[in-house]
């Protein structure tokens, strides 16, 4: 009786797990499949297979510049997000001060606020700042990076704080007693110890920034579009498998980043 119940439970658990996995993977599988369809209007079953849509990407200026802009923005925003997050996390994890908890929550806020709302808010802020100072902010690469930094920060802060919580402070004190000042201690002992959190935070920040559409829509200037915007614009006129091909490239890019990261840092241990 007992054994039967346990067996049924295990079957149910596996069933649900595989169903969920299938549900998550299904769009990826279909998009990838679609990218190789020969015909222009997607329909089942496919009339044949072709690689021409991948070639079409290279001939589309929007996709090429979009990819380039997205890369620049995501990398810059991730770097800035890390430089801000590491000191912030150190303070949040180690200093007891009034408003500590509130500050932690505040830094996670960009995760909660809808992208459209945040885009509007930053848009208005940038316009007002531009009027007040005369500096060309709105539509500039810097303005776009500033916005993206905001959505990177919750990830970097979150993951760096988590890895700091597991760090034995005695190791830092040992370094200091051996003659290392605070800077040396940080770079030689603290940073190597929290490296998994830093790397994972960077990866998630990068992915978030790279895939962001809603906020970017408000912040891009003429002739400067990100890859998600390029995809959206393309879809307004056509639904041929070029979009699927671009998506496959994007999936490969992110999957590649994760695999490379996982080689150095076991992501499952951090997240």
């Amino acid at each position: 009786m007992m054994a039967d119940g346990r067996f049924a439970g295990r079957v149910a658990l596996h069933g649900v797990a595989y169903l969920t996995l299938g549900f998550i993977l299904m769009p990826l599988v279909f998009v990838t499949w679609l990218a190789f369809f020969a015909q222009e209007i997607p329909s089942f079953p496919p009339e044949g297979y072709s690689l021409k849509w991948f070639g079409a990407i290279a001939n589309n200026r929007n996709f090429v510049t979009g990819l380039w802009t997205s890369m620049q923005v995501a990398i810059a925003a991730t770097m800035i997000g890390l430089v801000l997050a590491v000191p912030a996390s150190l303070i949040l994890a180690r200093r007891q001060f009034t408003g500590n908890a509130a500050m932690s929550q505040f830094l996670l806020l960009p995760l909660v606020v809808p992208g459209v709302v945040m885009g509007t808010a930053i848009y208005v802020f940038q316009i007002e700042t531009e009027i007040a100072t005369g500096l060309p902010i709105l539509g500039s690469l810097g303005g776009l990076i500033a916005g993206h930094t905001l959505i990177v920060i919750p990830w970097t802060v979150r993951l760096v704080t988590a890895s700091l919580a597991g760090l034995d402070r005695a190791a830092e004190e040992a370094a200091q007693s051996l003659g290392a000042n605070q800077w040396t201690t940080f770079f030689r002992v603290t940073l190597p110890a929290i490296r998994p959190g830093v790397v994972a935070g960077a990866l998630f920040g990068f992915v978030t920034s790279f895939g962001n559409l809603e906020m970017s829509l408000f912040l891009v200037g003429p002739g400067r579009i990100t890859l998600p915007i390029a995809i959206l614009q393309y879809l307004e006129w056509k639904i041929d498998p070029t979009v699927a091909a671009v998506s496959v490239l994007q999936i490969l890019l992110i999957a590649g980043a994760m695999i490379i990261t996982d080689r150095y840092v076991k992501l499952a241990r951090v997240v």
């Binding site: 005695a170 007693s177 000042n181």
Partner: peptide, 20 residues
């Protein structure tokens, strides 16, 4: 004096070795 100028050898309960 800060710890790094004291020339005191310290051994901790948790050993506190540098894991990397």
């Amino acid at each position: 004096l800060p710890p790094w100028k004291r020339n005191a050898g310290l051994v901790f309960q948790s050993y506190a070795l540098f894991p990397h």
